[in-house]
Design a protein around this nucleic acid. Structure first.
Length: 583
RNA sequence: CGGGGCGUAGCGCAGUUUGGUAGCGCGCACGGUUCGGGACCGUGAGGUCGGAGGUUCAAAUCCUCUCGCCCCGACCA
C-alpha cells in the first residue's frame, strides 16, 4: 500500500476525551473513530489488525476441531425469555421493538441461540460432541463504556460453545479450549495469565479467565511467584493466617472509648496512635453491615475483617448462601444498629440487638487484643477478642493481597492488574435443561446436553495489545497482529531515492511481506513520527546519503539501533526478522 | 444511579466572572524558501458558539429546560 493513497488520518494532538494509552494511540494513529459513546468505526488500519487477530483465532479454532457458524445479532425476545435472562440481564440488554410491537434485542452473548440451533438438530448421542464458534458483534448497554476499545457497547467477539454427552466429556472440551486459547494468546504476542475466576451470571461452576497483564487493567489478579496458581482477587484464596490457640490471658478487660469523628479505619488508627505510636490498622476490626434478599425487606449480616483488609463480597455471598450482597445504606445501619456507619461493631448496645449472622475473616479470629466499633456513634471498644467479647462464624472472607501465601505451595502471591481478554466456562446443563436441549443416550434415555462456552474479546484484545506494547512515540505491534509488517520510508524529494525505495517496496511485496510504502511528499520528520505512531514492526529507510553508499537502513520499532545493509540484502533481512518473530 | 468536568472552525483550546461586530495554535488551500525526527514566510477558506425557550436595545457570555461526551465510584459473560 502506498501511504500517499491510503486512508490513514493520523493526528498530532491528543484527543481530549482519551485517557488510556490504547485509546489515545488508536485515535491518533488513524485506526478507529468514535461515533457515539462506546461505539467505534474501524478505519483501514484498525480493520487490518482485526483481521489479523481473527485469522489467528480461526486457524487455531479450526485446528482444534471447532466449526464456524454465524448467528444473528438481532434476536427475538423469546429465546432469552426461555432461560429468564430477558429479565436477569436488565438494562444491559439493548432492547428494541419491531413495527408490530414485538420484543427484540441485540445479542450480548449467544448461549440461548446456539442451544436452540443444537436442540433442533441433535437427537442422539451419536451426533455429539460438537464445538461451534462465531466471530460477531456483540451489544451491551454498559453502565459506563470507557477507555476506547477496552469497554464498548458494540464490540467484536469470538464466542464458542461445546456440546457433550456428559460432564467428563465436557471437561475434555474445556481442556481442549484451554490449550487452544493458550496457543492463540501466545501467537497474539501477549503477556497473560490464566486465572481462576468467578463464573458470574452466565452460570456454571468451572471457569478461567485469560488476563492480559497491563497497569490499566480493570481486574485485580494475584499470581504465585513459585507455582502456576493465579486467580482473580474476586475468588483468590490464600493460606489462612496462623490459627492455633489465641492467648487471651494478657488481654485487658474490654473498654468503651470515646472516639469523636473517627469514622474510618484511618481515623481510628490516628486516634489510638496518639496513645501508642506502634498502633496500626492490623489491630483493628473493620465491621461492615451487608444486606441481601428483597429490597423492601432485606436480611442483614455483619462482616468482620481486619482493618487493613477488604471484604470479598463474592466470598461473603457464597458463605451466606445468597446470590449477592450489597453494603447496607446509612439509613439501614441506623435502623438496625442504632448507630452511624463508621461505628459499626459486633457488640451491640442495649438499645439495639443485632440478630443477623456475624461472619469474621480468619485473621480476625487471630487477634487477641483489638479495637472495633462499639455500635454506638462516636465510640469504639478496645481490648476485644473474638470468642471472649463476641461470637462470629469464622471463614476466609477477605480479599487476598500481594504478599499473602499461596494455598498450593506456600509461595508468595504477587498482585497484577489484568484486562480480561478471554473467559472459558463449563456451563453444565444450565441452559440445556431450561431449554430442553436433550439427546437420547445409548440406554435410550433422554438427557440434557452438557455445555461449555468460550469467549474472546477481539476488539478488546486489539486495545490490550497496545496497552502492553507501546512507548511515548506510539504503538509497538507484535509482528503477528501488526497492520503491516514493514514500512518503507523514502526520504526527501529526490526522484532517484523515491524510485529506488519503490523498487525495495516492490521486492518486499513480491517476497510476501505486507508492506506500507511512505511515498508521501512530506518532510522526513513527519514520516518518522507517523511510522513510530502507527507502530509497524520493521522500518526500512532510504535517503540520499545511504543510497550513495548503496545501502538502506533497517530499524525495529520494538527497539535497538538502526542497521545499514546493502540495498540488495534488505529483503532478506526483513524476511529474516519476520521469520524470527513467527517462531 | 451518585459525585465531578466539558460542549466555541476538521483537531486542541482562549473568550463566559463584569452582555457590546467570535479569537489563537495545529490542520487545510495557494505561492515561495526548506528537506534524516511533526520546518519557515506570505496569502486565504472555514464557526447554527450542542439544542430549545426566556431576559435584554443587544446573549458564546445571564436565567430555565434539554441533548451529548469524558473522568471517579456503583455496576459489569
Amino acid at each position: 500500500m502506498r501511504f500517499s493513497q491510503a486512508f490513514i488520518p493520523t493526528v498530532k494532538e491528543v484527543p481530549k476525551d482519551a485517557v488510556d494509552a490504547s485509546h489515545i494511540l488508536l485515535l491518533r494513529g488513524g485506526y478507529i473513530r468514535m461515533i457515539g459513546s462506546g461505539i467505534y468505526e474501524m478505519l483501514p488500519l484498525g480493520q487490518r489488525v482485526l483481521r489479523k487477530i481473527t485469522h489467528i483465532l480461526r486457524e487455531e479454532l479450526d485446528a482444534s476441531g471447532a466449526q464456524e457458524v454465524l448467528m444473528p445479532a438481532l434476536l427475538p425476545a423469546s429465546y432469552f425469555q426461555e432461560t429468564g435472562r430477558w429479565d436477569v440481564y436488565g438494562d444491559v440488554l439493548m432492547r428494541l421493538k419491531d413495527r408490530r410491537g414485538g420484543d427484540y434485542h441485540l445479542g450480548p452473548t449467544h448461549e440461548e441461540i446456539i442451544t436452540d440451533m443444537i436442540r433442533r438438530e441433535v437427537k442422539s448421542y451419536r451426533q455429539l460432541p460438537q464445538m461451534l464458534y462465531q466471530v460477531q458483534m456483540k451489544y451491551r448497554d454498559e453502565p459506563r463504556p470507557r477507555a476506547g476499545l477496552l469497554r464498548c457497547r458494540e464490540f467484536l467477539m469470538k464466542d464458542a460453545y461445546s456440546f457433550d454427552t456428559d460432564i467428563e466429556a465436557a471437561r475434555g472440551s474445556y481442556e481442549t479450549m484451554r490449550e487452544t486459547y493458550k496457543r492463540i494468546f501466545d501467537r497474539l504476542g501477549l503477556d497473560y495469565r490464566v486465572v481462576e475466576a468467578d463464573s458470574g451470571s452466565i452460570g456454571g461452576d468451572t471457569s478461567a479467565e485469560f488476563q492480559v497483564l497491563a497497569q490499566s487493567g480493570e481486574d485485580a489478579i494475584v499470581a504465585c511467584t513459585n507455582c502456576d496458581y493465579a486467580a482473580n482477587v474476586e475468588v483468590a484464596e490464600a493460606k489462612l493466617d496462623e490459627g492455633g490457640e489465641v492467648d487471651l490471658s494478657k488481654t485487658p478487660e474490654r473498654e468503651l472509648v470515646e472516639t469523636p469523628g473517627a469514622k474510618t479505619i484511618e481515623q481510628v488508627v490516628a486516634f489510638f496512635q496518639k496513645r501508642d505510636e506502634s498502633f496500626s490498622a492490623k489491630r483493628t476490626i473493620k465491621s461492615l453491615l451487608y444486606a441481601h434478599g428483597p429490597e423492601d425487606s432485606p436480611t442483614f449480616a455483619m462482616a468482620l475483617v481486619r482493618g487493613d483488609h477488604d471484604v470479598n463480597e463474592i466470598k461473603l455471598a457464597r458463605f451466606l448462601g445468597v446470590d449477592e450482597v450489597r453494603l447496607a445504606s446509612d439509613q439501614e445501619v441506623g435502623r438496625v444498629l442504632r448507630c452511624k456507619a463508621g461505628y459499626v461493631g459486633p457488640i451491640t448496645q442495649e438499645e439495639a440487638t443485632f440478630d443477623g449472622r456475624v461472619v469474621a475473616d480468619s485473621s480476625v479470629a487471630a487477634l487477641a487484643d483489638a479495637v472495633c466499633g462499639a455500635a454506638k456513634t462516636q465510640y469504639h471498644y478496645e481490648h476485644v477478642a473474638l470468642g471472649r467479647d463476641f461470637e462470629a462464624e469464622v471463614t476466609p472472607l477477605r480479599q487476598v493481597v500481594a504478599g499473602d501465601r499461596c494455598t498450593e505451595c506456600g509461595g508468595v502471591l504477587e498482585a497484577y492488574r489484568g484486562i480480561e481478554g478471554g473467559h472459558i466456562f463449563i456451563l453444565g446443563t444450565h441452559y440445556s435443561s431450561k431449554m430442553n436441549a436433550t439427546f437420547l443416550g445409548e440406554d435410550g434415555e433422554a438427557q440434557p446436553i452438557v455445555m461449555g462456552c468460550y469467549g474472546i474479546g477481539v476488539t478488546r484484545l486489539m486495545a490490550a495489545a497496545i496497552e502492553q506494547h507501546h512507548d511515548d512515540d506510539g504503538i509497538q505491534w507484535p509482528m503477528s497482529i501488526a497492520p503491516f509488517e514493514a514500512v518503507v520510508l523514502a526520504l526527501g524529494k529526490d526522484d532517484e531515492v523515491k524510485e529506488e525505495a519503490k523498487q525495495i517496496y516492490d521486492r518486499l511485496v513480491e517476497a510476501g511481506v505486507q508492506t506500507l510504502f511512505d511515498d508521501r511528499d512530506e518532510r522526513p520528520g513527519v514520516k518518522f513520527k507517523d511510522a513510530d505512531l502507527i507502530g509497524i514492526p520493521i522500518r526500512v529507510t532510504l535517503g540520499r546519503r545511504t543510497l550513495d553508499q548503496g545501502q538502506a537502513e533497517m530499524k525495529l520499532r520494538s527497539g535497538g539501533d538502526a542497521e545499514l545493509y546493502p540495498i540488495g540484502d534488505i529483503v532478506a533481512q526483513v524476511t529474516r526478522v519476520i521469520g524470527e518473530a513467527d517462531s
